[in-house]
Design a protein around this nucleic acid. Sequence first.
DNA 1: TGTATTTAGATCGTATCCGATTTAATCGGA
DNA 2: TCCGATTAAATCGGATACGATCTAAATACA
Lengths: 151, 151
Amino acid sequence: MSRPAKAAGKGRKLSNFLCFAVYSANLAFGRAYKPLLDKVGLTYTQYIAMVALSDEDEQTVSALGEKLFLESNTLTPILKKLEQMGYIRRHRDPDDERQVLLSLTSAGRKLIEQDLGEAVIEATGLGDEFPAVQKTVSRLRDNLLRNTKPR
Amino acid sequence: MSRPAKAAGKGRKLSNFLCFAVYSANLAFGRAYKPLLDKVGLTYTQYIAMVALSDEDEQTVSALGEKLFLESNTLTPILKKLEQMGYIRRHRDPDDERQVLLSLTSAGRKLIEQDLGEAVIEATGLGDEFPAVQKTVSRLRDNLLRNTKPR
DNA sequence: TGTATTTAGATCGTATCCGATTTAATCGGA
DNA sequence: TCCGATTAAATCGGATACGATCTAAATACA
């Protein structure tokens, strides 16, 4: 759970755990987005996948997975749902039939471009700190992934 | 997804989204703890629940839920599993049969006291920044929850 | 060429999250 | 006192995460 080495003894309180702060902040983000995403019929993860797909067309499932830190076991069902909703296209690469290429449809791109979540920036209450916090948390993530055995 | 207002236009990149940083940092924490928790047969969420329960004995499910930002629909199955594993006790409050009171068993307390996750602190690579980051992320969470309709 | 190996997705089972509903116990007002 | 409203857990269904396994396609190399 990772807490500061100093806060020993009786200080084993939940609030001292950085991993809990991140865990609960993630839940809080999900709830902040919920009302916005309900309007377009997407879940939080589906939306994150759409944003990642908006980076470029014809990404493979693996490439998307590297961006999201997820694998095909999690992504395949999500991608099939998004395809079924008409927001993305999935088709096998003719040059390598093992790979599936992903692209947003025009409907999908339109949805991403209306830029939901602008309102959530306000709700973070971070003001000018916003970019610094974003960088710090990203660095934390990268450190953890680097210092953890790949499996 | 909340990104800085400045990064408009083509800057709709995943890396600009704070919510994604938090989402992926949470996944990274789960993976960092995985090898440690596998040894004691706990999942990440189960361990977080145990830490929260170590705060005090005879907490209700609701009280625990407030700490974890979860409700009985999520907690009940987890608590039953922990009870079955012998780490906690669950019993109805005689004074109000609607409530279930929760306590760590001695086995559960012993597990928490061996202080897993000391190693994960190192893996965060935050050094002296650790307490500041913990506070900032907690504040972010609290802001989001406060600025989001309770449902 | 032929077969072992590797690779990309997909599938399956388990464990969260969470909205909605249900059940049982308690409370409250006429 | 009696019955409707409230409350605490539990249950149910849908959607992630993720380890393990499977299948099919591509690659390696003897």
